[in-house]
Design a protein around this nucleic acid. Structure first.
Lengths: 110, 110
DNA sequence: CTCATTAATCGTATAATCGCAATAAACAAA
DNA sequence: TTTGTTTATTGCGATTATACGATTAATGAG
């Protein structure tokens, strides 16, 4: 149904997949990398930097904002976006714990 | 168009997003966690463990296998799945480097 | 107030994803 | 060979995701 059955999974599993999902598009990866590199960036610069139309970038920014990974400050007619460091760290913690489970379990199969 | 414009992004950005995308569904997260916990698992056990139909599990397993995160050994009529440790480590390295970019850049915006 | 600039929203076309019933394929056992 | 077990594949409907043109909203400049 194109609809994930989130109710049969744990909160942790859903949280991991939500974070991973928002990173699951190269445009959003590129936006985040650019925000880190520039330390801050107005929306128009991202449109120029990445080769996508302005509504498309705006839509990706919205998804990143909905998950709390970035925040935007209105500066005149433009909007300055930057990484929400606390939330980024929290996400990193969740994903790293998942990725590091190979360290806590011994593998000797197949 | 429902189609990501991968050609305008770097190989690194596309690689990150591909790995993240496969982790972007709670069923695949649950499968991986169970494979780590059990150290190995036949397909039928995953169907029982997770509350999804057998074709759905099989489809998620296929996606994990396509990216190389798991491998499957045929054992009679059943198939034993387990984590592909080398590829898992490689993925972890790619994602960790992306997640840790906040450590290499100073943040003082917004 | 008018105009230009910038970003968000709306609407829509297209494609991908999710889930599962039905079926096929592969294998073991009798 | 026939039967049962297990997994993969096919086909389909429902939903979500991606991208962008057109429009709207908000602000600053003149």
């Amino acid at each position: 149904m194109g609809l994930a059955k989130t109710e049969i999974f744990t909160d942790q599993q859903n949280e991991i997949s939500l974070f991973a999902k928002v990173l699951g598009h190269p445009a959003r990866v590129a936006i985040l990398q650019h925000l880190f590199k520039m330390n801050a960036c107005i929306c128009g610069d991202l449109v120029n930097e990445i080769g996508l139309a302005q509504p498309t970038i705006s839509q990706h920014l919205k998804e990143l904002k909905n998950l709390g990974l970035i925040k935007g400050n209105v500066e005149g007619t433009s909007v300055c976006y930057c990484i929400h460091k606390d939330n980024w760290t929290a996400m990193k913690s969740v994903l790293t714990r998942f990725l590091d489970q190979d360290l806590t379990e011994d593998q000797d199969c197949c």
